[in-house]
């Protein structure tokens, strides 16, 4: 199976095709509803974000507490709730997104325009996915608790390409 690493290079993004399975290794950052809302407001006000988004990959995830472990269960949350906040993040350089479910037409267009990529990973498999995480630290918005931004180092994290950089979308099958 194809293996890719973060930060995602232009070539590796270009090579990814919608529907393709990949294993991802490297650093990704969690962010979900409230973190997206905050980052978009900060971008609007031209404030400094808690992380430099350029070239990075965001994972729509709010893990359960780690306890003695590296991380708790950490599956994806529904991506479509982040649709309204996605274009501003892509505009400042975000390249990869990981979540579950379909995206809006606006997001698909933006992914194509910014030559980015959207991956899906199985929802409801949080215990399994936690074994692919090698380290986890809070990177920003700590006050948001489970919704804080965590920096995760992952190894062979299982993904399927949902929308590739040409705008091909696995959820648009048969809609053309």
């Amino acid at each position: 199976m194809k293996k890719i690493a973060t930060p995602l290079s232009d070539e590796s993004i270009k090579s990814l095709k919608a529907g393709e399975e990949v294993l991802l290794t490297g650093t990704i950052y969690t962010a979900r509803d409230q973190a997206h809302l905050r980052m978009c407001r900060m971008i609007e006000k031209e404030e400094k974000l808690p992380l430099e988004l350029k070239g990075e990959t965001i994972y729509y995830c709010g893990p359960s507490p780690a306890g003695e472990r590296i991380i708790g269960s950490c599956g994806p949350t529904t991506s479509s709730r982040m649709d309204a906040f996605t274009e501003p993040l892509l505009r400042v350089g975000l390249l990869g997104m990981i979540g579950k479910g379909s995206r809006s037409e606006e997001v698909r267009e933006a992914i194509k325009r910014y030559k980015a990529v959207y991956f899906i990973t199985p929802g409801g498999a949080g215990a399994y996915l936690s074994k692919k995480v090698k380290s986890s630290v809070v990177e920003g918005f700590e006050d948001l608790g489970p919704e804080a931004i965590y920096r995760l180092d992952v190894e062979d994290f299982p993904l399927v390409v949902g929308i590739d950089s040409k705008g091909n979308d696995i959820y648009k099958r048969g809609e053309k």
């Binding site: 529907g19 399975e21 995830c61 709010g62 893990p63 359960s64 472990r69 708790g72 269960s73 950490c74 599956g75 949350t77 199985p122 929802g123 409801g124 498999a125 949080g126 215990a127 399994y128 936690s130 074994k131 489970p146 299982p158 399927v160």
Partner: peptide
């Protein structure tokens, strides 16, 4: 198929969660 593989991951996930007393899904 990818679908079969993903379904097997869910079954493996359930076994792991039970064995290690971890949440099946992070959204508890």
């Amino acid at each position: 198929s990818v679908s079969e593989k993903m379904m097997r991951i869910l079954i493996e996930n359930a076994a792991m969660a039970e064995k290690e007393t971890m949440p099946i899904c992070q959204d508890t």
